[in-house]
């Protein structure tokens, strides 16, 4: 029943042997030891398992392994490092965003996907993009602040690089 699948995660190619129907979440967590996509519901209702697949935020608890093969998958582990955190991560740290942080994978990955497509989301656009996520502890207000901070810093960085190019 197991099939050999080639998965491209965070720029690295992995050969995995697993059931082709197995949701990507369990392959990432159990076979590749990438633990940040988290199990929250297994139903696509909370977003704790979010990964970015070909640029879009996707619920890995519902995505069969067979449909993840060959795609560019990015997990939280692939965003930034201690030395060079992704601007979204830096903003979330600066805002002291979370309580327990178990859900944060979904918010950080969804924020990255949102800001990649819409560098200056309005309050309404941000709420709409996040409506399908759950934070049971209630860190929402700080999450919103962190996303605004990330958006501003990413726009500033983009303007800076535009200026450098034109200089």
């Amino acid at each position: 029943m197991n099939t050999n699948t080639s998965l491209k995660v965070n720029g690295q190619t992995h050969a995995v042997s697993a059931d082709s129907d197995c949701p990507l979440l369990y392959v990432l967590r159990d076979d590749l030891a990438l633990h940040n996509p988290r199990f929250g519901c297994g139903l696509g209702q909370c977003g704790a398992c979010t990964v970015i697949v070909d640029g879009r935020a996707v619920r890995s608890c519902l995505l069969p392994l067979s449909r993840a093969a060959g795609k560019e998958i990015v997990t939280l582990e692939g965003l930034g490092t201690l030395e060079k955190p992704h601007p979204v991560q830096a903003a979330f740290i600066a805002e002291q965003t979370f309580q327990c942080g178990y859900c944060l994978n979904g918010w950080v990955m969804s924020a990255k996907a949102l800001l990649d497509q819409n560098p200056n989301p309005s309050d309404a656009e941000m709420r709409k993009a996040f409506e399908s996520l759950v934070c049971r502890c209630g860190s929402h207000a700080r999450i919103f602040s962190a996303v605004r901070r990330a958006a501003a810093s990413m726009r500033a960085a983009a303007n800076l690089s535009d200026a450098q190019r034109s200089a």
């Binding site: 030891a33 633990h35 965003l79 955190p85 944060l104």
Partner: peptide
């Protein structure tokens, strides 16, 4: 004082119970 656990959590280095093997 900033939360001591926040950077590790947000950078994805934190061990929750679900990660124990």
């Amino acid at each position: 004082l900033p939360r001591v656990d926040m950077p590790a959590k947000i950078l994805g280095h934190f061990t929750y119970i679900t990660d124990v093997r």
